[in-house]
Simulated scan of single mutants.
Amino acid sequence: MINVLFGAKPDMWAEYEAPLNDAFAKSGLQVDLSVDHAPSEVDYIIYSPAGTVSDFTPFTRCKAVMNLWAGVDSIVGNQTLTQPLCRMVDDSLSRGMVEWVVGHTLRHHLGMDRHILGQDGVWRSEFFPPVAPDRPVTILGIGQLGAACGQALHQLGFPVTGWSRSAMDIPNIRCLQGDAGLQKALTGAEIVILLLPHTPRTENILNAERLALLASGACVINPGRGPLIDDNALLAALDSGQIGHATLDVFRAEPLPADHPFWAQPQVTVTPHIAATTRPETSSGIIADNIKRGEAGEPFLHLVDRTVGY
């Protein structure tokens, strides 16, 4: 019997218990899934931020920790974690992110708010957007999610530039890297999408100096991580008109406090961390498959490299 501890947020247990047990049964694994296994008896931990496990020291038998989210910044620096850590890589996560990013990109590209919010009897025919090939888009972070979003935007005709720390070669995306590449990627961009992980090297990567590189009135879309943006610099750029709008799905503190200036800034759209939501049915199958690999002595999939933080 394989003992699996559900150490994610307690309120997630009701939606995950049945899908996980179904996935384990389909994989042929004999699993005892519980929220209260004794630490010394646990073979695998299913984890999420704000879950029930923060000290991994007692879990001496644990073979791996399975993260339910794509991001691991809440756990990767935990000094008690010595077990292998696997992040969630799920096609449904990618699909959800692509749909959210494309939807908000088109919203700003087309200027939809002018008409959706302007139902006041005024015939606003003075504005029409450029076609997509004339609207440069930059994506900071072209891993799996960033590349998927870039391909979808390319299919719509947008010229897409992607930036990463290390060299990448992705069809249909102009790939840049390094500090010089970052400046080039941002200069003149009209829509910037942030899909980087949060690490010490990416915190405040979009600061006042770099916001000034964008085209005047540019749009910033952040479904990545809140600390990627210097909040005060963004608010100042919005006030000056250098940034025309910011659509933000992630924040330094979540839920976003009711007194945060973003709520009062009319050129900010706040969405409640919904761009890419882990879905129990598909993620349960991925966890079951990874545990099956571990039990067979095969390498785990989607292992986190803690030296780089993702």
Rank of each mutant, 00 (worst) to 15 (best):
T247E: 09
Y310W: 14
N78I: 05
G96L: 01
F6I: 06
M97D: 15
L196C: 10
L117H: 04
A18R: 07
M112C: 12
Y16H: 13
G121D: 01
A8L: 07
F56E: 02
L195I: 03
V250K: 05
A180M: 06
Q151W: 14
D179M: 11
S34G: 03
V308D: 02
N21D: 10
A148W: 00
L117M: 03
A233S: 07
T187C: 07
R135A: 15
P171R: 02
S240N: 10
H245C: 11
T161D: 00
P255Y: 08
N3W: 11
F127G: 09
A236R: 08
A167F: 04
S54H: 12
K9L: 05
V308L: 02
E17A: 15
A14I: 13
L182H: 03
H115R: 09
S164M: 04
Q119I: 15
Y16N: 12
P197L: 15
A180C: 09
T52W: 01
S283I: 09
L33R: 06
G224M: 05
C149A: 12
T282R: 01
I221G: 01
G71A: 11
I2P: 00
M168G: 06
C149L: 02
Q83E: 04
L110K: 13
A23Y: 12
W263N: 09
C219S: 10
Y310S: 04
R135W: 11
G121C: 00
T282E: 01
S240V: 11
E298C: 02
V304P: 06
A258R: 15
Q177A: 12
L29K: 06
V35M: 14
A148Q: 00
T247R: 07
W69Q: 07
D231W: 11
T269G: 00
H108N: 12
N232E: 13
S240W: 09
D22M: 13
D179Q: 04
I229Q: 01
F6H: 09
H260R: 12
L106D: 02
L106E: 01
L211H: 01
D113Y: 05
P257K: 05
G217N: 11
T202C: 14
A236Q: 06
T105W: 12
H109F: 09
Q265E: 06
T105L: 13
A147K: 08
P272H: 01
N207T: 04
V65H: 07
G146D: 15
I191M: 12
D259P: 07
R114S: 07
S94K: 01
N204E: 07
P266M: 03
A70T: 06
P266L: 03
A152T: 00
Q183V: 08
P133L: 01
P299F: 11
